[in-house]
C-alpha cells in the first residue's frame, strides 16, 4: 500500500520539479518501487527533468479519460529500474483533472508501488489542489526569501484544510519543510532569510536544506536528476533528505559559507 507524497510550494520556480525528480530517484535507488506524477496540466516539465521527454506516448489525462491504460502511460526511468514517470498532458486544460479520475489512477498505482510522488504545479488552482488532495505526506519546498515563505504558508493552510485527510478528519498530512536554493554567504550578508527565520515563520519540521548550485541547471538541461550528481553538495543534500525521510538521522550540511583556508587559496581549489 503506497505512501503518497506531494511536493508543493505555492510559489513557482523554487525547486518542486527538481525535488520531485531527485526524491523519487533517491527512493527508487534504495529499492522502493516509486512512481512520480506530473500534475501540471499544460506546462509539462517533469519529463524534461527526468530525461524522458522523447518517450512520452500517453499521459496522465489520457489515463484519467480512459484513452490509455496506466501501464501504457507509465515510462520507466532510464537510470533507475524501480522508477516510473507519469507525464502531464500538454494539450488539455486543467479541468481534465478531477478528484474522481485522479483518485482512480492513484488507487491503481497504490497496490503495486511503495511510493507515489506527486509533482505539484505552482499556485493554488486545480492542478495544485489535485496534487495535494490525496497526499499522506508533503514536502513544502521553500526558498529563503519572503514571497516564497508567504506562499508556502498559504499552501500549508490549504493542505490543512482542503486535503482528503482534512475533510474526513483523519490524521493530518505529515508536513516536511525543504529549504532550497540556500546560499550561506547571502544569508550572512543579510540578503536572504536565515534557516531559523524560515523555520520560525512556517513552524513545520525541517527535512533538509539544498544549497544553491549551478549543478541543478546542468542536471535539468541534461535530463538527469540532481541526486545522481553525487559529488556535488546539492546531490548529496538530496540524498540526505531521502535518508532522513526514511528514518535515518543525518546532520544538516552545507549551512556554513565556505571559508577558503590559506592552503586552498594558495593552490586554488
Amino acid at each position: 500500500m503506497a505512501t503518497i507524497i506531494v511536493v508543493t510550494s505555492g510559489k513557482g520556480g523554487v525547486g518542486k520539479t527538481t525535488t520531485s525528480a531527485s526524491v523519487s530517484t533517491g527512493l527508487a535507488k534504495r529499492g522502493f518501487k516509486t512512481a512520480v506524477i506530473d500534475f501540471d496540466v499544460g506546462l509539462r516539465n517533469l519529463d524534461l527533468v527526468m530525461g524522458c521527454e522523447r518517450r512520452v506516448v500517453y499521459d496522465f489525462v489520457n489515463v484519467i479519460q480512459n484513452e490509455a491504460l496506466l501501464k501504457q502511460a507509465l515510462i520507466r526511468d532510464k537510470h533507475c529500474d524501480n522508477l516510473f514517470i507519469l507525464p502531464a498532458s500538454q494539450t488539455r486544460d486543467k479541468e481534465a483533472l478531477n478528484k474522481e479520475g485522479v483518485g482512480r489512477v492513484l488507487d491503481e498505482l497504490r497496490d503495486s508501488f511503495d511510493y507515489i510522488v506527486c509533482d505539484s504545479p505552482a499556485g493554488i488552482e486545480q492542478g495544485a489542489l489535485m496534487a495535494l488532495y490525496f497526499a499522506d505526506e508533503a514536502f513544502i519546498v521553500t526558498n529563503p526569501e519572503v514571497s516564497s515563505v508567504r506562499d508556502s504558508d498559504r499552501i500549508l493552510g490549504i493542505l490543512q484544510a482542503r486535503s482528503k485527510r482534512a475533510e474526513t478528519g483523519s490524521t493530518p498530512i505529515k508536513e516536511h519543510l525543504l529549504v532550497t536554493r540556500y546560499s550561506p554567504r547571502r544569508v550572512e550578508a543579510g540578503e536572504m532569510l536565515s534557516l531559523k527565520d524560515v523555520q520560525d515563520l512556517l513552524g513545520i519540521p525541517l527535512i533538509g536544506v539544498i544549497p544553491e548550485s549551478e549543478v541543478v541547471l546542468q542536471a535539468s538541461n541534461s535530463g538527469v536528476p540532481v541526486i545522481h550528481f553525487d559529488q556535488s553538495p546539492s546531490g548529496q543534500a538530496y540524498d540526505d533528505v531521502v535518508a532522513r525521510f526514511l528514518g535515518e538521522s543525518r546532520p544538516m550540511r552545507f549551512l556554513e559559507p565556505e571559508r577558503k583556508n590559506f592552503l586552498r587559496r594558495l593552490f586554488g581549489t
Binding site: 508567504r150 504558508d153 498559504r154 500549508l156 493552510g157 490549504i158 490543512q160 484544510a161 513552524g203
Partner: peptide
C-alpha cells in the same frame, strides 16, 4: 491552537 496561516 494551530497557527493561522496566510490567507486564512
Amino acid at each position: 491552537q494551530q497557527a493561522v496561516r496566510s490567507g486564512q
